[in-house]
């Protein structure tokens, strides 16, 4: 595929991935988020971070299974969207839940295991986002960069626990995500083993 087409495609994907955030802002400003808009924003931003994590982890299996090598060109963007929605989710937490009172927030992170889990996930995303540029990749060297970015295989574990410990009942959706992540990660193990 031509470089021009790829750049255009990237632009399209970039805008499409932004749509959930735009809709959320639009609906917040027009008071269309229901009786508890603050909760809705927190839930939606978290859910979208989760969905983009699934997409990011799906790139390699899809590439290998179907030979869609072009997908690799979008992996970084999808990964950065995980971080983008996680940032919004974290912002919602410190703003809506604690109104920027840092000591209260820190207490919550320490005392409430489900928040601890979410916070750990967020912290682990940070170095990945920060080292996502070509420049950083070069600076770290391919091997070290790759080692660092294996963190992405650990993050789903913390994210799923964060989700699970927050729920009161009805574990259907968290079950589905657990299954999807398991398939995506186990496929990698299997692929490595069978291609040795």
């Amino acid at each position: 595929m031509e470089q021009k087409t790829i750049s255009l495609l990237k632009g399209v994907v970039f805008v499409v991935c932004l749509i959930p955030a735009i809709l959320l802002f639009y609906n917040a400003f027009t008071d269309n988020l229901g009786a508890n808009p603050v909760e809705e924003i927190t839930l939606e931003t978290g859910t979208w971070a989760l969905r983009f994590l699934v997409l990011t982890l799906a790139i390699t299996p899809l590439r290998k299974i179907f030979g869609w090598s072009i997908l690799i060109r979008f992996r970084r963007m999808l990964g950065l969207y995980v971080f983008f929605y996680a940032c919004l989710h974290f912002l919602a937490f410190i703003w809506f839940d604690h109104f920027f009172e840092l000591d209260e927030m820190i207490k919550d992170v320490i005392k409430r295991p489900f928040i601890t889990m979410g916070f750990i996930s967020f912290v682990m995303l940070m170095p990945l986002a920060m080292t996502s540029t070509n420049k950083m990749m070069k600076r770290l060297g391919g091997k070290r960069w790759q080692q660092l970015h294996r963190l992405v295989y650990v993050i789903p574990f913390f994210v799923v626990i964060h989700y699970l410990w927050k729920l009161k009942a009805d574990f259907l959706m968290v079950g589905i995500y657990t299954l999807v992540f398991s398939v995506l990660l186990l496929w990698r193990l299997w692929y490595r083993y069978s291609n040795r």
């Binding site: 609906n27 027009t30 269309n32 988020l33």
Partner: peptide
Amino acid sequence: GGLLLPVS
């Protein structure tokens, strides 16, 4: 799957 559109 979105639940983002205003349903009210």
